[in-house]
Design a protein around this nucleic acid. Structure first.
Lengths: 295, 295
DNA sequence: ATCATCCATTAGCGATACTGATGCCCGTGG
DNA sequence: CCACGGGCATCAGTATCGCTAATGGATGAT
């Protein structure tokens, strides 16, 4: 007998709100119902999941949270996937894209699609990588563009919450952005593991998030020294130029940044990769966009 | 509001049994209940999912099946994961292993573990690759050994149904087994894509399943010509020697097979890989086994 | 044509899952 | 130290849900 997802949903809400009553309000239940839900879940699994006063997950509860999110996502993805089969209205094109993927290539492809099918309602929403994929899975978006680092011609490690199609649209060498007068600036290429303990700038919106570097380099280093939340690459370049830290970027976007130098990352063999993600049965508008991106 | 997994489970049963009444019996329901479940699911998703007379999935139903299996698995995995946190009895070691992973290395490691902890109840069960992983996720086994082909140092593509730890224990070159008098038998190495249209023997218990070759070579070829269901490698060798077809095997297991020759597969760069899979919080017995496998 | 099989439908009943009211515990302020 | 208040637990009541049993209807076989 499987875990009841209804209970799981309120469990997630309770943990997120750190409160039974707030969760109840958020879900449209009474506080009593939420309390009963948690009690039922705990009795079902035979352990305490929630610490009360203050409200928070126990160890088992934290473990359950790791299952709950992807489970609820997949449940929604299943419904969205079936719903997609029935609809026949391709007069909409919603693109969820990670910040760094909103490139001239994309805007040009969008322009091309709009030119050929003028009645199309196009929407672009910028999301984090996982959120973008999630929107495709739940039907909130028709197609996503995501980026990340991977070994050459390897697919990006995306959350696996259902059947979907991914297609690489770009693969660029990875470069390290550093001050022009940095001792390493003249090198032809650099080895990433040697830089694990350098001062890093975490600019998740613009550069490769340090978490990803850590994952591909299988290292514990790459600790963020300064975090940059902006989306303007010249601001990032200014920080790098003045010595606040290094950043890993796709090579093409490093050209012409004053005060900085870009050096290719030679080892391990890594690329910055951009992929389109769409449902297995894309709408005609999505197909057109994908074709435009590749053509 | 998420899809009800209870309904999902009877949906899967109906599709598998190709019958409402048989599914009802299997689930311990009345036929009426099953009929109502399917009706509820169809009304919830707004489409017909099951074709009646004869009973089978519609297009939407087939799509739903692709979600249903992993979902139910993950639901069980969540429960098993929490249950593992509570139990403190490591006096059991159940190993689920794919047929080709039951090697001297494994038996030796098992012997070592049994020698150091004599009271341990050891069980070995041979399963298909996905089933072995499933048993670990649902708690039916403590650890799994699975094999498959992948690019060198790439992980195997395993079903992602929850947090688990995988660790490579062996990586061997891949070889093509062919008759000793085959025109290609003298070659130093072979390219896999050139062989897509050859006559292949499918021996999923022993050799690399053709489906995996198809996946890694991204080809539509590798159609099974003859299927071999046995687990005896000499029987497979006899079939290969008499020209019934080719088979891909890890190089070490091809030595000393009469009437056959083994040629390394040079491109694409592939290896036969063996991995241990265990829960993120392994029992001490599992840790001992993993240590013995690596030491 | 008759029957057997299998799925759909309906009525009824027991279980479930909410709400609303109340109780209890703990942290807080006087 | 005590009174208060916020917040979770508990309980009773009720409406709904989900099951079984019985029946009906369609389809295919003999």
């Amino acid at each position: 007998m499987p875990v009841d997802p209804h209970l799981l949903r309120t469990f997630v809400a309770v943990i997120e709100h750190r409160s039974f009553s707030a969760a109840a309000q958020g879900l449209g239940y009474t506080q009593s119902a939420v309390s009963q839900h948690i009690a039922a879940l705990e009795s079902d699994l035979g352990t305490q999941l929630v610490e009360r006063r203050p409200v928070g997950p126990t160890v088992a509860g934290e473990r359950l949270m790791e299952h709950a999110r992807p489970l609820l996502l997949r449940l929604d993805a299943a419904r969205a996937d079936i719903a997609r089969l029935q609809q026949v209205r391709p007069a909409r094109l919603t693109v969820a894209c990670a910040p760094a993927t909103l490139t001239p290539a994309l805007t040009k492809a969008l322009a091309h699609v709009r030119a050929t099918t003028p009645a199309l309602a196009v929407a672009v929403r910028v999301r984090g990588r996982d959120d973008a994929v999630r929107e495709v899975l739940t039907g909130a978006a028709d197609v996503a563009l995501v980026d990340g680092v991977a070994a050459p011609s390897d697919p990006l490690p995306l959350p696996d919450a259902g059947p979907m199609t991914t297609l690489a649209v770009a693969e660029e060498p990875l470069a390290l952005l550093l001050p022009a007068d940095h001792p390493l600036a003249r090198r032809r290429s650099l080895r990433l593991p040697d830089l694990a303990d350098a001062h890093w700038l975490d600019a998740p919106e613009l550069a490769v998030p340090l978490g990803q570097l850590r994952a591909v380099a299988r290292s514990d280093g790459f600790a963020p020294h300064v975090t940059y939340d902006g989306t303007d690459i010249r601001g990032l370049a200014a920080l790098v130029a003045s010595g606040h830290g290094l950043a890993a970027l796709p090579l093409p976007s490093t050209t012409g940044l004053p005060g900085t130098a870009a050096v290719r990352i030679g080892a391990p063999r890594l690329v910055h990769r951009t992929e389109v993600v769409h449902p297995r049965t894309p709408t005609s508008a999505v197909r057109a966009l994908v074709a435009a991106l590749n053509g």
